[in-house]
Simulated scan of single mutants.
Amino acid sequence: MTNPVDELVRRTAERLAARRKGAVVVGAAHGDLTATYGADPGTLFEIGSITKTFTSLALARLVVRGELTLGRPLRDLLPAAVPRRDGHDIELVHLACHTSGLPRLPKGLMPRALWQTADPYAGCTEAVLLDGLARTRLRSTPGRRFRYSNLGAGLLGLALARHAGVGYDELIQAEICRPLGLTDTRVTLTGEHASRLAPGHSAFGRPRPGWRLAALAGAGGLHSTVPDLLRLARATFGEAPEELVKAIALSRGTGHRLGRASTAHPGWLSMTRAGDREGPRLLFHNGGTGGYRSLLAVIPERRAAVAVLSADARAVDRPGLGLLAQMVSS
């Protein structure tokens, strides 16, 4: 029997690969069907900010188990002076939804350094982050405004790992990867995993070194494959252990409205699709590092998902979202 998703995925992968220097893998799931095209499906990529989806899901698991609450102040989990504003503490949910008031980047790291430096986050050790945090002024009252913050997401990963008494990588392995069977998702690559990492490239096709986010790993330090990301997507369909299903439901039920059509949830952005205002919402997150781009987009009620990974720093959002739209309309 012909898989109707195959041709859509193949065309998308071929269009992307034709214009890029680095490897590309495109995958999709629709109902019980799955298709993957491009480089070897086992190829590993830096997934950048899709890491935030894993970090926030780990928080939701700890909340479901009763170990933490979404409203727990960050100051309870870190040995540092955490800034406040207008008498309000930064809560864990604020970090997950980007409403903490923290700046986008750690103190002393300028935006231009992200693209002018081979590994801009390499110096973001725990000591450096906590020292800078104590000297950071919040841009808004916690919980009031959406301000996307890599610093906030990284601090969330650091705080959760300290709470669990393990490193961030082990936290994600224990809370998400092992329960879902994600064998290729990890921060540190060694041996056989390292040999499968696709070399990264700039938007102009020049080789780019990998990023190591040090203590900010929770903001964007994971590597993964398309099959692993599709397994995570299927967890939003309900295909996961009960505690993870509950954690995903908690994340989807928690959010900060950004406008009439979009909401920031822990680990995801959601939006209604044009022409489908009364239909199910799209959940998505993208990612980018110096030499990679990524997208994970899901419509759980339609049991449809797309994952795109590219070892080239040009965006993949439009073709990936276009693929998803074609799948659910066909």
Rank of each mutant, 00 (worst) to 15 (best):
Leu258Phe: 09
Ile248Leu: 15
Ala249Thr: 15
Arg234His: 03
Leu230Gly: 01
Gly238Asp: 07
Arg252His: 12
Ala240Phe: 02
Ala247Trp: 00
Leu250Trp: 04
Leu258Asp: 08
Gly255Ser: 13
Val245Trp: 00
Ala240Asp: 12
Arg234Pro: 07
Val226Ile: 06
Thr236Phe: 14
Ala235Gly: 05
Ser251Ile: 05
His256Asn: 10
Pro227Asn: 14
Ala240Thr: 13
Lys246Pro: 04
Leu229Val: 02
Arg231His: 04
Thr225Phe: 01
Thr225Leu: 06
Lys246Tyr: 01
Val226Pro: 01
Leu229Asp: 09
Leu250Pro: 09
Arg252Met: 07
Ala240Met: 06
Val226Gly: 03
Ala247Ser: 10
Ala235Ile: 11
Leu232Ala: 03
Glu239Val: 09
Arg252Trp: 06
Leu244Glu: 13
Thr236Val: 03
Ala235Arg: 02
Arg257Thr: 14
Gly238Cys: 04
Leu258Tyr: 10
Leu244Val: 02
Ala235Thr: 07
Leu250Arg: 08
Leu244Asn: 12
Leu250Asn: 13
Asp228Ile: 01
His256Pro: 10
Ala249Gln: 15
Ala249Trp: 05
Pro241Trp: 00
Ser251Asn: 14
Pro241Cys: 05
Leu258Ala: 09
Leu232His: 09
Gly255Pro: 15
Glu239Trp: 06
Asp228Gln: 11
Glu239Leu: 07
Pro227Cys: 14
Ala233Glu: 02
Glu243Gln: 11
Val226Glu: 09
Pro227Trp: 07
Arg252Asp: 09
Leu230His: 00
Asp228Thr: 02
Thr254Gly: 08
Glu242Thr: 14
Glu243His: 06
His256Thr: 12
Leu258Glu: 14
Lys246Thr: 13
Leu244His: 11
Ala249Lys: 11
Gly253Ile: 02
Phe237Gln: 09
Pro227Phe: 12
Ser251Phe: 06
Ala247Pro: 03
Ala233Ser: 07
Ala235Glu: 10
Leu232Trp: 03
Leu250Ala: 15
Leu230Ala: 01
Lys246His: 14
Pro227Thr: 11
Leu250His: 07
Val226Met: 04
Leu232Glu: 05
